[in-house]
Nucleic acid binder design. Structure first.
Lengths: 65, 65
DNA sequence: GAATAATGTCAAGTATATTTTACAATTAAT
DNA sequence: ATTAATTGTAAAATATACTTGACATTATTC
């Protein structure tokens, strides 16, 4: 399941995957994979991404029903 | 930094580390290490733990100031 | 106070998150 | 239509989450 909330939040800050990756200190592929939804990032990375995008864990990473 | 919120939530459900570990499908050492704070679990595991304990990511895993 | 349950911790192994490099596909700008 | 920027994706390597097994220590309970 894709993470569209992350994609939207990133777009809302006008950041490319590469911009966000650099800000979060990971590779672009990692951001791409998280948005694509086929993997399971660590919570510290999620927290880092949330802080950069001004969102909370629940807003970006809590699964829909 | 210890995760005391997790420890408290677990105690609130009267579960041992081993009980929670089994419910979450991980080893007791993993739960111990998360509570002790010296590592960085995956978000899927965090979500799983939250569901078992009836809490949200923000309640258990968002860092204090 | 002995026995049992719960927890801390360590070392060695396995699974998997993440990187690097690289190229193809799509979108936006000129 | 071309160029540049953004994104999808894949293979091989590296870092690290997580397991297993084992023992020590701290509560609990009898």
């Amino acid at each position: 399941m894709k993470n569209l909330k992350l994609k939207a939040a990133r777009a809302g800050k006008d950041l490319s995957q590469d911009d966000l990756a650099k800000a979060a200190g990971v590779s672009r592929q990692t951001i791409s994979a998280i948005e694509k939804g086929d993997y399971n990032p660590t919570i510290n990375l999620c927290i880092n991404i949330c802080k950069i995008l001004g969102k909370t864990l629940d807003e970006l990473f809590w699964p829909e029903e």
